[in-house]
C-alpha cells in the first residue's frame, strides 16, 4: 500500500493545503519501503489531488486540511487521515501499529476532549473531517 505524509522538516506539516513536501512510501506488512521525498508545492488544490493520484497514493497522513481539499482527495479514492502532528518517524510508527488516535498525535482543537467554540461547529454532518483520528 502506498502512503504519503505531508512533511515539514522532520514533522508532519501543520496544514495539508500549505505544505510543500511529501514523503511517499510503501507499506508491506509491518515494513516501510521505498521512501522518497518529493515536492508538493502547487497551491492549486486540484493539482494537489492530481499529484497524489499520479503517485498512486492510497492513504494520506496529514495535519489540518480544508474541507474542499479533503473532499476532492477523498473523491479521487485516497483515504485521508487528517489532524495529525508529531515527528514523521513517530507518526509512521503509530500508523503501522494503529495508535494514531493517541492524543499526542492530534492537533490542538481536534481531539475527542476538544470542546466546541461557541458559534462554530466543529463537525459537519457527513462533513469532511469525519475521518479525523478522533473517531
Amino acid at each position: 500500500m502506498k502512503v504519503a505524509v505531508t512533511v515539514w522538516e522532520n514533522t508532519v506539516s501543520t496544514v495539508c493545503d500549505f505544505s510543500s513536501r511529501l514523503l511517499v512510501f510503501n507499506v508491506m506488512g509491518d515494513e516501510v519501503k521505498n521512501r522518497s521525498f518529493m515536492p508538493f508545492e502547487t497551491r492549486i488544490l486540484p493539482e494537489r489531488v492530481n499529484q497524489l493520484e499520479a503517485l498512486g497514493v492510497e492513504v494520506l497522513l496529514c495535519g489540518a486540511i480544508s474541507r474542499p481539499l479533503e473532499r476532492m482527495i477523498r473523491a479521487s479514492g485516497v483515504k485521508v487521515i487528517p489532524c495529525l502532528r508529531g515527528s514523521i518517524e513517530e507518526v509512521i510508527g503509530a500508523y503501522l501499529d494503529g495508535s494514531l488516535s493517541d492524543a499526542r498525535f492530534i492537533l490542538p482543537g481536534f481531539g475527542p476532549g476538544a470542546s466546541r467554540v461557541r458559534g462554530r461547529k466543529r463537525w459537519r454532518r457527513g462533513g469532511a473531517s469525519a475521518d479525523c483520528p478522533t473517531r
Binding site: 501543520t14 500549505f18 510543500s20 490542538p108 482543537g109 470542546s115 467554540v117 462554530r120
Partner: peptide
C-alpha cells in the same frame, strides 16, 4: 478562540503553529 476554532485550554502550552495553522508558519 472564535477565529481559530480552538479553545484557550487546548491552545495554551501548544506550539503556536499547531494552533494558528497559517500558510506562513512553516515558510
Amino acid at each position: 478562540e472564535q477565529i481559530t476554532g480552538v479553545l484557550r485550554e487546548d491552545a495554551v502550552g501548544q506550539h503556536c503553529k499547531d494552533v494558528l495553522k497559517a500558510d506562513v508558519c512553516e515558510k
